[in-house]
């Protein structure tokens, strides 16, 4: 109804509907795959598209979408930016969250503050090494993965203790009326990130830095500051995302977030963010997260063993890459 009115109103300017269509266009593949997967899941395993199961899928998607915050921002920042450490950072966030809070609500703010602090430190180390010592992001974050995993192992002595504070559990699996808190969190994150990317100075700078670093430097933009800030935001999103993961699962295990590194990259690629940097949306990555979680759920629902699931995830990522991100021919 309101759509029709919109069209009528803008009749003299036919470009308006076109604009809406153009804005929606990048999301149509993801949205249609989501619908298709839901139908496929329901056919293969009745009850798949039930409200309860969809709630679960949305919750896990939100966790993945948090990992995708880090990945989206870093990939937009260009220079072959990528964050392979996000899975390890999330695992560590969950583990430290359980140990530091001792499973008590009263300790939660202290825990959050410490995790933010650790996130800032990890982000700064990544950013400085990448920006000032010219270590490729891939190698630096791969190295950081093993340091962070090692730190989590050393800190917990291999025996994770404590549990999720009640407030995190409530966020992870609780409802506000009929709506899951995780769905609310997901929507809030999408709106917040889109606002940051489109409306703030940081967001606009990020796109420029990603698309053309030389031009950014010449126009007086502090590229170093933007890139450092991006890696810091990414790692903080990782440690706090670990807390959310802890709330959803209820207890912490070593390397529980390992898969999120690969999945978040896949989500960003599905979301249409260019791997060369300088363009992309967070909404796309969030929808990509839903696609991937749905896909995994379908594979679980039809009873695929874990190994086959990982294998298929790899093949699907290959397929996505072939569709979305082939490089131009050398001849051109």
């Amino acid at each position: 109804m309101s759509m029709e009115m919109n069209i009528e109103k803008s009749a003299p300017k036919p470009s308006s509907t076109k604009m809406i269509r153009n804005k929606l266009k990048p999301y149509i593949p993801s949205l249609s795959i989501i619908v298709l997967l839901l139908i496929l899941g329901q056919i293969l395993s009745p009850g798949f598209a039930s409200l309860g199961n969809i709630g679960t899928i949305v919750s896990i998607s939100t966790v993945l979408a948090i990992a995708a915050i880090a990945q989206t921002l870093i990939i937009i920042s260009g220079n072959e930016g990528i964050d392979l450490s996000i899975g390890a950072v999330m695992s560590m966030g969950a583990l430290l969250g359980a140990v530091l809070s001792k499973g008590m609500n009263t300790e939660i703010w202290y825990t959050v503050l410490i995790l933010i602090g650790i996130g800032i430190i990890i982000g700064l180390i990544n950013g400085i090494a990448i920006q000032f010592i010219n270590i490729p992001p891939l190698v630096m974050t791969l190295g950081m993965t093993s340091v962070v995993n090692g730190f989590a192992l050393a800190y917990t002595k291999g025996l994770p203790s404590g549990g999720a504070p009640e407030i995190l559990v409530k966020l992870g699996i609780g409802h506000l009326g009929p709506i899951r808190w995780m769905l609310i969190l997901g929507i809030v994150l999408i709106i917040a990130l889109e606002l940051v990317l489109r409306k703030t100075r940081y967001g606009k700078t990020l796109y420029l830095v990603g698309s053309n670093r030389m031009a950014a430097i010449i126009s007086g933009i502090s590229v170093n500051k933007t890139v450092l800030l991006t890696y810091v935001i990414a790692s903080v999103a990782g440690t706090l995302g670990g807390l959310v993961l802890l709330g959803y699962v209820g207890s912490a295990q070593l390397e529980m977030g390992k898969d999120y590194a690969l999945l978040s990259i896949a989500a960003v690629v599905i979301g249409g963010t260019s791997l060369t940097g300088g363009q992309g949306t967070y909404l796309g990555s969030a929808l990509g997260s839903v696609v991937l979680v749905l896909l995994t759920s379908v594979l679980v629902a039809v009873g695929m063993p874990p190994g086959v699931r990982v294998l298929l995830q790899g093949l699907i990522l290959l397929l996505i890459l072939l569709i979305y991100s082939r490089e131009p021919k050398l001849r051109q």
Binding site: E80, I82, L138, L262, I265, V269, L275, G307, V308, R309, V310, L311, L312, Q313, G314, L315, L317, L318, L321, L322, S325, R326, E327, P328, K329
Partner: peptide, 17 residues
């Protein structure tokens, strides 16, 4: 012509899976 980094990340998943 897929980026080496992402292509081999995907094949890692294939091999490890």
């Amino acid at each position: 012509r897929v980026t080496p980094l992402l292509a081999t990340l995907a094949t890692t998943s294939v091999a490890a899976g």
